[in-house]
Design a protein around this nucleic acid. Structure first.
Lengths: 236, 236
DNA sequence: GCAAAAGTGTTCTCCATACACCCATGG
DNA sequence: CCATGGGTGTATGGAGAACACTTTTGC
């Protein structure tokens, strides 16, 4: 009943991470008003899917938790620490990795957009806009789609969007983050009311001027409202 | 980078299932009006936690998907097939299994309450009321709590409660299911409106008499509204 | 008739939405 | 003064909560 499977058919466990960040540039350095969701991918250098782009990840270390493994692949790929990290799903279909059997526990992470600009870019790491990805290795396209769906549902009832912004921000900036995630326009007036009806943000007293118009007030999240966090996992 | 960990520190992968059913009896055969959530546990016959009660589960077969493994442990424990099955979470803290390293992908399942009465009860399988569990092996108490929390949130916006009932049912029966899950009373009038505002149930035309009062109409879910289902997983 | 559960109607409040309107700034 | 985005006010509609009320049965 509790017999171990044969060695030649053993199941491999891996941890991968969907890393999401906001970028306002178009990938070649030029600013382009509306921010969008981007994510870093790594190029595979072995079969299966040699040469294809894939989610960063790898085997689980014996002395690290699942979340720690996700954080590690995040750091190894981008040099960044996550502002938000949550388990997405465990993918384990029999045929998802040609030639062997891999179960992937996948996490999704949000990283600061200003930090993301300084992120490492190596020969085998490249950032892609989330809505125009190439065909990825394994079932990774479906995994990214699921992560984006989770992000969209979660941005509507939680404050995760803050993880994509800096310490202070204007309400228009926060709104454009929501718009980039939801892929639709939001009414500025109603958005403002909805956000501060939760009583989580406070004005800093300062303003930010951007164009030929009235300056916008800067806000921050009150220190008494900790960032929404998923299940507590003990670190190694 | 993709090197396999040493054999002596390898991580074991297991699949466990939180099986939930509705029971109106008190466990010793007597009917007691209000139904409650019950779940089957298996007694461990080896260390660690020898003799303690634990969630049914075991290693993942090389040719079965994660969901298939969950279904298998469900069948082996109760002889039943799930009416609803969804992945709950992957638990992988380093110290959750004394002496070795186990990552458990946990599913939760709902089974038909009338079938559940005929479920197998063996020497090492026993049903417990979900709100009065003994101290379980590993982190299984926390896992059950998380499953119940997921069930509570999901019953409010989906039609999963149908998986705990038979083909036809009265609105009062459906409401008592919701009440058993949410642990609070619901207004019969508002509950009725809320349910049929979704347009998923239809009257069968028949009624059911239960006491010295007006008989209740029987309903069924319309065939055009399939049961809500989680992520599609391909079977082996 | 009475008790009890089934089922309907009405009101109220709280939202999200739509959108008109004023404010502050650069040019 | 005008264009532009920042910010406020207000009307409307829908969903849920509270609860009064009618219907149908067994006794």
């Amino acid at each position: 009943m509790a017999g171990a499977p044969h060695a030649d058919v053993s199941v491999t466990l891996a941890v991968s991470t969907v890393i999401l960040a906001l970028r306002s540039d178009d990938g070649i350095g030029a600013e382009s008003g509306d921010p969008a969701i981007w994510l870093p991918l790594v190029r595979r250098i072995r079969d299966p899917f040699d040469g294809a782009w894939a989610l960063p990840g790898g085997p689980l270390g014996a002395q690290e938790s699942l979340a720690d493994a996700a954080r590690r692949s995040l750091a190894e790929t981008t040099g960044l620490a996550p502002r938000y990290l949550e388990q997405l799903y465990a993918f384990g279909d029999v045929d998802r990795s040609p030639g062997d059997r891999v179960v992937s526990v996948v996490y999704w992470a949000l990283v600061d957009s200003t930090e993301a600009r300084r992120a490492l870019i190596g020969q085998n790491v490249r950032w892609f806009p989330a809505d125009r990805l190439p065909r990825l290795a394994f079932d990774h396209n479906a995994i990214v789609d699921y992560a984006l769906e989770r992000l969209r549902t979660k941005v509507e009832y939680s404050d995760i969007a803050r993880a994509l912004l800096g310490e202070t921000f204007t309400l228009t900036e926060l709104r454009t983050v929501h718009e980039a995630i939801l892929q639709r326009r939001l009414d500025p007036a109603n958005f403002r009311r909805q956000i501060d009806s939760h009583g989580q943000i406070e004005a800093t007293g300062e303003t930010r001027r951007t164009g030929a118009h009235r300056p916008a007030r800067l806000y921050r999240y009150s220190s008494s409202t900790p960032s929404s966090s998923p299940i507590k996992e003990t670190s190694a």
